[in-house]
């Protein structure tokens, strides 16, 4: 009797495991998990960001800022805080986003030289982030439910086993017509994204150039975005990454927009 029970239990667990595995292979579910691993790592995070904007002639511009993030729930609302350090003309400016997946984002900027808090109209999520090849949506993530996903194949990329997922926006979207995402089977991070226009031509490539484990969390510490049409490229380095700092949501308010929290921002 006992053996039967045990056999049933093992059998049950095996079925669950199989089902889970099949589930995991479901493209949409995979994209969700990848999204969690990439954009919702830990409950909050801090990083010192160095962004290099390289144009087609190789001329380079550098943007340096500190970024704080707090997730209300995994896959749910997020709050971002950015403190610009350089170049000189934007130094000390702060920028805050309250992101609601599927809803409207609220954005504010603070210009300390005139003590001005200004909400920014955030209609076009596809507009460039500080003139880089990354859009606002690339920075905080496009919600996986906005696209239809299909698992094309399982393959390898730079010696890593990956899932290749094809995503097509449910509604017409000016940023891309189709996207291929190469998801690392182990870390679930999107190691590469290829964007295509309606003529099937590749327009942009996003790459995770370097992945390191920070506080036990696989983290992309160098990312790049290449614009094939413009010949430009943006390389972003994330330094001094810290997770689970215990950030409070009151930090993402006008009070701190005007008074950067020096505990985190120097």
């Amino acid at each position: 009797m006992r053996t039967i029970k045990l056999t049933l239990l093992v059998l049950g667990l095996t079925i669950i495991a199989f089902a889970y595995n099949a589930d995991a292979k479901d493209a949409s579910e995979l994209m969700k998990k990848s999204h969690m691993a990439y954009y919702y790592a830990a409950d909050d995070g801090l990083s010192e960001v160095n962004m290099r904007l390289i144009n087609k002639r190789g001329k380079e511009r550098v943007r340096e800022f500190t970024m704080l993030r707090l997730d209300e729930s995994d896959g749910g609302k997020q709050m971002y805080y950015t403190y610009f350090k350089s170049p000189s003309d934007v130094a000390r400016m702060t920028f805050m986003v309250h992101k609601t997946p599927g809803g409207n984002d609220a954005r504010w900027i603070y210009v300390p030289s005139v003590d001005l808090v200004k909400p920014i109209s955030a209609d076009d999520k596809n507009s460039s982030f500080v003139g880089s090849d990354f859009s606002y949506e690339d920075v905080s993530g496009r919600h996986w439910t906005e696209d239809n996903h299909k698992l094309l194949e399982e393959s390898t990329l730079n010696g890593k086993e990956v899932y290749v997922i094809e995503s097509v926006p449910k509604e017409d979207f000016n940023a891309f017509h189709k996207k291929l995402t190469y998801i690392d089977k182990e870390t679930l991070l999107p190691m590469k994204e290829e964007y295509f226009d309606k003529d099937g031509e590749m327009t942009q490539i996003m790459r995770l150039e370097k992945v390191e484990t920070v506080d036990g969390i696989p983290t992309a510490t160098v990312r790049s975005m290449e614009n094939l049409k413009k010949g430009s490229k943006t390389i972003v380095e994330f330094n001094s990454i810290d997770y689970n700092l215990g950030l409070k949501d009151n930090l993402f308010t006008e009070r701190y927009l005007k008074n950067p929290p020096r505990k985190y921002i120097r």
């Binding site: 409207n104 609220a106 909400p119 920014i120 109209s121 955030a122 209609d123």
Partner: peptide, 9 residues
């Protein structure tokens, strides 16, 4: 009063 309305401010 200031806020978001129809994608604008």
């Amino acid at each position: 009063i200031r806020g978001m309305l129809m994608g604008g401010i």
